[in-house]
Design a protein around this nucleic acid. Sequence first.
DNA 1: CTCGGTGCAAAGCTTTTGCATCCGC
DNA 2: GCGGATGCAAAAGCTTTGCACCGAG
Lengths: 156, 156
Amino acid sequence: MPVVLNKKFGVVKQIFNSYLENKGLRKTPERFAILEEVYSKDDHFDVESLFLSMKKKKYQVSRATVYNTLDILIECDLVSRHQFGQNIAQYEKAYGYKQHDHLICDDCNKVVEFCDPRIHSIQQTVGELLGYEVFNHSLILYAACKNENCENKINK
Amino acid sequence: MPVVLNKKFGVVKQIFNSYLENKGLRKTPERFAILEEVYSKDDHFDVESLFLSMKKKKYQVSRATVYNTLDILIECDLVSRHQFGQNIAQYEKAYGYKQHDHLICDDCNKVVEFCDPRIHSIQQTVGELLGYEVFNHSLILYAACKNENCENKINK
DNA sequence: CTCGGTGCAAAGCTTTTGCATCCGC
DNA sequence: GCGGATGCAAAAGCTTTGCACCGAG
C-alpha cells in the first residue's frame, strides 16, 4: 500500500533516478525510501527526526545511510540544507518549491518562509562588483513577534 | 608592555566594562584578555584558533571561559557569530565595523564582505508583511571565482 | 562476481556541563 | 566571606568513519 504522494513526486523520483544513473551510483531501495520520506514532510526536519520517523515504518535505514543519501539529494538539488540554530542542520525538500528565504522568530522559534525579488538583484549587483558568479544565497531574518499574547513571550 | 591596539579599542573596553557593571557580572582579567585577543584579529576566527593563539601568549584561559565570554560579548554586540560551514561557528569583532554581509567563494573558500542598503528595506518590508519586528539578519552569497587562474579551481 | 552501499558501533569534533577551586566585589 | 567565574575533564550531541556483510549491475 503506497503512501499518498503529491503529484510532483513522480518527477522527483525520475530526476533522482537519472542522477544516480549519470553518476554511476547504485539505485538502492534505501535511497528511494529516504527520498520518499523527505518528500512526505511539509516542514523543515533534522536527520534525527527523519531517521526516527523511518524507523517507525517499514523502512529502517541507518543514520549513516540517511546522511549519505541526503548529501546526494543536495547535490542534485532535490533537498536543501539550512543551518538555522547553532548545531543541528535542518533539511527540506527542494524540487518545485520556489526559492524562498526564512524569518525566525526569537520568541516563538517559529520559522516563516518568504520571498522577495530584490534579493536576486542584490545577488547580481554584488557578484558583478566583486567579480564573482553568485549561484545561491541564504537570507535569514531574525525577528520578534508583534503579538503580545505569544505564549513564549509571556514565559520570558 | 601592552599590545598595540587600534584606536577604537579604548571605547570597546569601556563598553564591555559598563556592560559587565550593569549586568552585575564580574570584571575578570580573563574576560578582558579575551576581548583584547578578539579585537587583535582582523578576520573571522573559530573558538579553537582563539583558544590556541591565547595559549601561546601570557593569557591561558580554558575553552569553557572562551565560550562563556564570547556569549557575553555577543550579548553586548561587541562580537558577532556566523555559521558559514556546517559545523564550526565563526566569530568576528563587531564594534564600529559597519553592518555587512558575506560572500563565500566555493572555489577559494575565501570570505568577502559586502554591504547593500537594499537588504535593510527587505527587512522592513518582510517584517511588516508578516507581522514581525525584524531586528537582525544574515545574508550569505555562495559564489564561484570568475578568475580562471584560481589555484583551487585548477586543482578541481 | 565485483565493488559500491548498508548497518552498526566506535571515533571525531565542537560545545556544554559538573564540580572543586579561586577571586572580584 | 559570599557567590559568581574559572579550569579541567568528562559528557553530550551531531556527524563521520571503519569494517564486515549484502546486493545492484
